[in-house]
């Protein structure tokens, strides 16, 4: 019974890790950019969602329809005005490292802006789902985590289908495979990049909202999930959608079940150990292929 509780908790928390990593893996898969601002963007989405909730009191899950488009726009414009100019200037550089530094700088800017505007207080959205729990066959799970699991599964599958079967999805994948060839085939690569960054950020907004009812909001909250998102992405295979979800769930399970048999501090070490093992045995990650999509 307790094992079952730990199992269910591990899967639900892992699905959230996967959802957070989804945007990161997309941006890497298509643009080949390691986005260090990912955690800060998650924090920003949570902040925005929190304040809209605070002033309107709307059900947090309906907020997805507001915050996701908002963050898509934010991501799209960030790409246009910050990342694209730097990418263009380093077009012929073999290792375009400037973008990596740029995203790290953006992370700091976002965090400090949030500190300035929203202050350093810890806040939490005490919504109607916050303290609700679901009991299934003796297993207790908070309603918020249950909805998080459902949403993570639905969003990841929808996104996977979108990439596989739509025109835009094919364009995105084409840019990811070879941007010069994609350009020759008549794809508007710069625009596709901006869309990719926008979608990555919008997916992150969904993750932010599933966290909102049961997690605190603070300018540093992104850092808690940032490292984990990177591990998930490498574990699942850079650029792989099912890989991100599975990687997330594996880490969630190690943390949750592991902690029943050892101290929580030790499970963190185990997560990194598994990560190292995967890098040794299959450096491209569980779902990574040498063709990348």
């Amino acid at each position: 019974m307790d094992f079952l509780s730990a199992l269910v908790n591990g899967i639900s928390m892992g699905a959230i890790y996967g959802l957070i990593a989804l945007g990161l893996t997309l941006i890497f898969g298509i643009m080949k950019i390691i986005n260090f601002a990912h955690g800060a963007l998650l924090m920003l989405s949570m902040m925005i969602a929190y304040w809209i909730w605070k002033f309107s009191g709307i059900n947090p899950y309906i907020l997805i329809l507001i915050v996701s488009p908002l963050m898509f726009g934010f991501g799209y414009l960030s790409e246009r005005f910050f990342i694209k100019p730097v990418l263009d200037r380093q077009k012929d550089v073999r290792e375009p490292i400037a973008v990596l530094l740029l995203t790290a700088a953006l992370a700091m800017v976002f965090e400090n802006l949030a500190l300035m505007i929203f202050g350093a207080d810890y806040v939490m959205a005490k919504t109607t789902v916050t303290d609700a729990t679901i009991v299934l066959g003796g297993v207790t799970l908070s309603a918020a985590r249950f909805y998080a699991l459902i949403l993570a599964l639905v969003i990841s599958s929808a996104f996977f289908l979108f990439l596989q079967y739509t025109e835009l999805g094919r364009k995105l994948r084409a840019c990811g495979q070879d941007r010069n060839t994609a350009l020759l085939m008549g794809i508007n690569v710069p625009q596709t990049y901006a869309i990719a960054f926008g979608i990555g950020t919008a997916l992150l907004a969904v993750a932010a909202i599933v966290l909102l009812p049961f997690y605190y909001v603070h300018p540093t909250v992104g850092n808690v999930f940032m490292t984990k998102a990177f591990i998930v992405v490498v574990l699942g295979g850079l650029g792989s959608v099912p890989g991100a979800l599975l990687g997330g769930i594996i880490i969630g399970l190690i943390e949750s079940i592991g902690a029943q048999y050892m101290t929580a501090t030790l499970t963190t070490a185990i997560v990194y150990l598994v990560f190292l093992l995967v890098l040794f045995i299959k450096p491209s990650g569980l779902f990574g292929s040498k063709f990348e999509w």
């Binding site: 928390m13 890790y17 808690v224 999930f225 984990k228 949750s256 902690a259 029943q260 929580a264 963190t268």
Partner: peptide, 21 residues
């Protein structure tokens, strides 16, 4: 039970479950 945890843990449910047990 002596259960240390890192204060920046993303989820403390495992610790709570262990305690409940």
């Amino acid at each position: 039970l002596k259960e240390p945890y890192p204060s920046n843990s993303s989820d403390l449910t495992p610790v709570v479950l262990k305690c409940k047990n």
